[in-house]
């Protein structure tokens, strides 16, 4: 992730389309990723910074959705609370920058923890904390199934939302500004294009990890746990730890996206934790196509573009957004990727 120009990462995630080089699916995937990389770079050199930032936003949201897709699409765990990890990741970046800026320690007991404006430290902390949070929430929530699981994940996210909203130290409802974007050694993160490339590398890495994971024995077990956990259990594998691990990885990816988002906006606030955002992430996953590697990316592109374009046309844009979403769920059962690239997976 430190080297945004590395292309080895990208190939790993493109691998699923490699076996069908000239298939429609491979072409669509390659086009999506290629456009996401080429358009902002072109826009940057033409001086249209805005489009680079828009692309960064799409990329980060897509990355968060990649995380959620791992839980929902591959693991069958319909989490309605992934905003919790997105927001926690964001707050890690915000709080860390806040203490680094003030030269105050984050905590002094039992040992002193200073703030940091180094992105590597921020990401590490965000990953660890989101992982721990997901471990705790997942351990309890995965005892339930179906609608109960949807609701208990929502409840935990609401708990954290209310906590952030009313806890005054880090701004409460006002949120926390990040005055200066957290930095990396050797890279100027305040440059719009470099930051986009960092985000892009993050997205590609997240997709590569998902892809690798699903092709491993672990992935096979996770798929089995989703489709038929009784059979998995008779094979001597308990589905619970498999699901829990997948849930934690999913949360870590979404949390890292949250940290990137906070640094992109220079701002973190409780809205990143709200149930509306959890809902939007789900919408993006479904919009793109559940359980498809490129689904979250397609969904994020479509969702953010609709938000941006409709918002400029009418103040009732959310009405039309609702109509489009309804149309997708009723008539395009397999999401945008299903429509573009054909069916991938049998339900």
């Amino acid at each position: 992730m430190t080297n945004p120009t590395s292309s080895g990462v990208a190939e790993a995630s493109l691998a699923p389309s490699a076996d069908s080089h000239f298939s429609r699916k491979g072409l669509v995937q390659l086009t999506l990723l290629g456009l996401l990389l080429l358009l902002p770079v072109t826009a940057y050199f033409l001086g249209h910074i805005y489009y680079v930032n828009l692309a960064s936003r799409i990329t980060i949201i897509a990355m968060a959705a990649v995380g959620l897709n791992l839980a929902i699409g591959y693991g069958g765990m319909v989490s309605f609370g992934h905003a919790a990890y997105f927001g926690l990741g964001g707050y890690v970046a915000g709080i860390s920058a806040y203490h680094a800026f003030d030269f105050t320690p984050f905590m002094t007991w039992p040992f002193s923890v200073p703030g940091s404006d180094n992105l590597l430290v921020v990401w590490l902390a965000a990953a660890v904390l989101c992982g721990l949070l997901a471990l705790a929430i997942g351990a309890i929530s995965l005892r339930t199934t179906g609608v109960y699981f949807i609701m208990i994940t929502l409840a935990f996210a609401q708990m954290i939302y209310y906590f952030a909203n009313s806890w005054p130290t880090y701004g409460g409802e006002d949120g926390l500004p990040i005055y200066l974007r957290n930095g990396l050694p050797l890279v100027d993160t305040t440059n719009t294009l470099s930051y986009f490339l960092i985000c892009f590398a993050g997205l590609v890495l997240a997709m590569a990890i998902t892809s690798r994971l699903m092709k491993s024995r672990f992935g096979a077990a996770l798929t089995m746990a989703r489709l038929n956990d009784v059979r998995l259990a008779t094979a001597g594998i308990s589905p619970y730890p498999i699901r829990l691990i997948a849930f934690v990885i999913s949360a870590v990816i979404t949390g890292l996206a949250g940290a990137l988002y906070a640094d992109l906006n220079g701002f973190v606030s409780p809205t990143m934790l709200s149930w509306h955002f959890s809902g939007e992430l789900m919408v993006i996953v479904i919009l793109g196509g559940v359980g498809r590697l490129y689904g979250p990316l397609a969904g994020a592109i479509l969702f953010v573009m609709m938000e941006t374009l409709l918002g400029g046309i009418t103040q009732y844009w959310q009405l039309f957004l609702g109509l489009v979403l309804l149309g997708v769920v009723l008539f395009a059962k397999h999401g945008v990727m299903g429509w573009l690239a054909g069916r991938e997976r049998n339900e």
Partner: peptide, 28 residues
Amino acid sequence: RRLYHRPHLDQVLATFALILIFSEGTRL
């Protein structure tokens, strides 16, 4: 009625869309 045989996920998305439609329709 098109959603009864669909997974919970589709139901969540469709009814989430309905929230947007109802809210903004009421405001209209």
